[in-house]
């Protein structure tokens, strides 16, 4: 799954720091040389690895983006985890458990990548749990019935894949490598969702209506996942300059629309947009206006499930505290015992 983090500041960020980062005023000769080396490597499409010199703004942007991405994976487990105990068959239950476990793994790959930039796991989790850090807004909407689980796989994960594939070429090595791993696993997520919907579409009229209803509720939210239009996305240009972002929000959104239209046709559902039509001149689909006010309201904490998601996450963390402490105490005891035996 994915986050629209490129353009969304965390709660703590100074509004002024959100736009293009100004070049620091007085670079000393050594810093200027390092900056020139860094720029040359980026221009040559090279990779930056941990512990190498990097501009502070590059590091900060990556920490924010990778940690938001990790948070999205972790919070993304909640809307689907909700359905594990109510999956319609043992097969679907096993599939859903595997998928939710993958999301947990994706969160872990990403937290690890962020840690190579000098932040700690606890700092990141604290930022999530205190509500300071953002995660993908898509998870602040409810999964009302089983069709939603299929649609989340098909459309939400489909949008995520569109977003994540270019990140495999990100200039920061650990992030790119984590994304390669994530993308390999994500394909199963989208296909299982689409296939679950195909099965429902062979069912009763009511089941078909459930699928259409879920598509209607999720479509526009998935389009918003790609983030604000390029014109309103000042961070994008800098992200592109740094080789963190490879394809613009609007271009990714267009690719997603063009890929999804034929899939919807095969599935036998319509996409809820009267303005959606093929544009022969552009060789792409035109589509209607996205409700950005709703998007920002949800990003800023006023979506239907923001409080519930964060509450569930914090409760799980607090309830698990004794397990984390016990594991550490056990390890320390074992270590002490070994030292005593060796003495």
């Amino acid at each position: 799954m994915y986050t629209q983090s490129f353009s969304v500041p965390d709660g703590s960020d100074d509004a002024k720091s959100v736009g293009l980062k100004a070049v620091p005023k007085a670079l000393n000769a050594q810093d200027a040389a390092l900056q020139a080396q860094f720029d040359a490597r980026i221009d040559a499409d090279g990779r930056i690895e941990p512990r190498e010199w990097m501009p502070e703004a590059y590091r900060k942007t990556l920490v924010r983006q990778i940690s938001q991405h990790a948070h999205s994976e972790i919070v993304g487990m909640l809307p689907e985890g909700n359905w594990i105990s109510r999956a319609p068959s043992l097969k679907r239950k096993a599939i859903l458990i595997a998928k939710v476990q993958d999301e947990g793994g994706h969160g872990l790959y990403l937290y690890s990548a962020a840690e190579t930039l000098g932040t700690s796991r606890d700092q990141m989790l604290d930022a999530l749990h205190s509500g300071k850090a953002k995660y993908s807004s898509i998870f602040n909407y409810p999964t009302l019935n089983w069709a939603d689980v299929g649609v989340v796989g098909w459309l939400v994960d489909g949008a995520a894949i569109m977003n994540q594939v270019p990140l495999c070429r990100c200039s920061y090595g650990p992030y790119a490598r984590a994304m390669v791993r994530v993308c390999k696993e994500e394909s199963f997520h989208q296909r299982q969702g689409y296939e679950a919907l195909l099965v429902m579409m062979q069912g009763t009229a009511e089941q078909k209506a459930m699928v259409q209803d879920a598509v209607n509720r999720w479509w526009w939210k998935c389009l918003a996942m790609f983030g604000p239009p390029d014109a309103d996305s000042p961070n994008s240009a800098q992200g592109m300059r740094w080789g963190i972002k490879r394809i613009s929000n609007d271009d990714l959104r267009q690719k997603f629309v063009d890929a999804t239209v034929p899939q919807a046709k095969v599935l036998g559902v319509t996409l809820p947009d009267p303005d959606l039509k093929w544009n022969e001149a552009r060789q792409a689909h035109d589509y209607g206006q996205i409700d950005w006010d709703e998007f920002w309201a949800t990003v800023n904490g006023n979506g239907p499930c923001n409080k519930e998601r964060l509450g569930a996450r914090v409760k799980a963390w607090n309830d698990g505290a004794w397990v984390r402490e016990a594991a550490l105490a056990h390890a320390q005891k074992q270590q002490a015992r070994q030292q005593k035996e060796a003495a």
């Binding site: 606890d122 989790l125 604290d126 205190s130 509450g311 914090v314 984390r324």
Partner: peptide
């Protein structure tokens, strides 16, 4: 948002 994390739990397992 009404979210407090128990600080006693902020003791990380080592990295491997």
């Amino acid at each position: 948002m009404s979210t407090t994390t128990s600080t006693s739990a902020l003791k990380e397992w080592p990295l491997w």
